[in-house]
């Protein structure tokens, strides 16, 4: 049974609290960012990349704790190095990318847990790392997320044509003058930084849901690319705000609440989506 039922007065009280306002704002921005980046990542088949990066980020956080640094400061360079490393390995190695990602992320996770087990003060706090602590988001964190949203949004807007062509067919894109190698690298670095920054709010286990679920829901119902990206971003933001409100109202953990709302959105999209696939001859 739930500990507390829904109470509008209780929710109004919560909304008056500054940390709840910051949390809602953080959810809104993270959701927008996840949906925006996710709409491209899902088409590029990079959804597993964001999942693997999320898990590997735990190693970055553990290193930060061990060195006594602000985890966010460690996470950004860690994520960029991870993206560059995976890109390099995938280009060089004869192994499929998903297998490589699996090796990198499970070993990072193992190392991170070993490191954390040596740090006494964090033995109890691992749950916060795994599922995020959106109520602990500071104004500084919000500023960083906003800057990132503007940066990533600007980059995707300006390079929209190159991004879509690369997603369709790489030789076709290069023949149209797209700097394929540069844009491929740039995109996964941006994706990595976004995942790293969102981890504080969402946690390492659920971060990939922010990237994958709104984009997939939008993909099922959209009839054009501009609508697709817009719907994914709005769905990401809307689900985050609804999920946080629900978590406040019913006193539930915030990250999982958001993901459950995203799941509901996805199921709704499945219902609404056209069922008959046009026949391919």
């Amino acid at each position: 049974m739930l500990e507390s039922g829904f109470d509008p007065a209780h929710l109004a009280q919560l909304l008056a609290l500054p940390f709840m306002q910051r949390a809602l704002l953080a959810g809104l921005l993270t959701g927008l960012l996840g949906g925006l980046l996710g709409s491209f990542a899902v088409l590029r088949q990079l959804s597993f990349f964001s999942d693997a990066l999320g898990h590997s980020a735990l190693l970055g956080i553990s290193l930060g704790i061990l060195l006594g640094l602000n985890p966010t400061l460690v996470l950004i360079p860690f994520a960029v190095l991870f993206a560059l490393g995976v890109n390099h390995l995938a280009g060089r190695s004869q192994l499929p990318t998903d297998a490589l990602l699996n090796i990198v992320y499970s070993s990072s996770l193992a190392l991170a847990v070993l490191l954390l087990s040596r740090v006494r003060s964090y033995k109890g706090g691992i749950q916060q790392l795994l599922f995020g602590d959106i109520l602990g988001v500071s104004w500084l964190d919000l500023g960083v997320i906003l800057l990132l949203l503007l940066g990533a949004g600007g980059y995707l807007l300006l390079s929209r044509r190159s991004q879509i062509l690369l997603t369709i067919d790489e030789p076709l894109a290069i023949s149209r003058g797209v700097a394929a190698g540069w844009h491929r690298l740039m995109f996964i670095v941006v994706l990595a930084v976004v995942v790293a920054i969102s981890i504080k709010a969402v946690g390492v286990l659920l971060i990939s849901a922010f990237v994958v679920i709104p984009a997939c829901a939008s993909r099922l119902v959209s009839r054009g690319f501009s609508t697709y990206v817009l719907v994914a971003a709005l769905l990401g933001a809307g689900c985050a705000v609804l999920g946080l409100l629900a978590s406040g109202a019913f006193d539930l953990p915030s990250g999982p609440s958001v993901v459950v709302v995203q799941l509901l959105g996805f199921l709704l999209a499945l219902l609404v989506a056209p069922h008959t696939r046009s026949a391919r001859s």
């Binding site: 088949q45 044509r161 190159s162 879509i164 149209r176 003058g177 099922l220 959209s222 054009g224 697709y228």
Partner: peptide, 26 residues
């Protein structure tokens, strides 16, 4: 080779052939 449902309309795709290389506002 497009994997699954690809949310790009024919008009949008043909427009990509019209656009010039490099960064530009859509």
């Amino acid at each position: 080779a497009l994997q699954g449902r690809f949310p790009l309309s024919v008009a949008e795709f043909v427009g990509l052939g019209w656009d010039r290389a490099g960064l530009a506002l859509p």
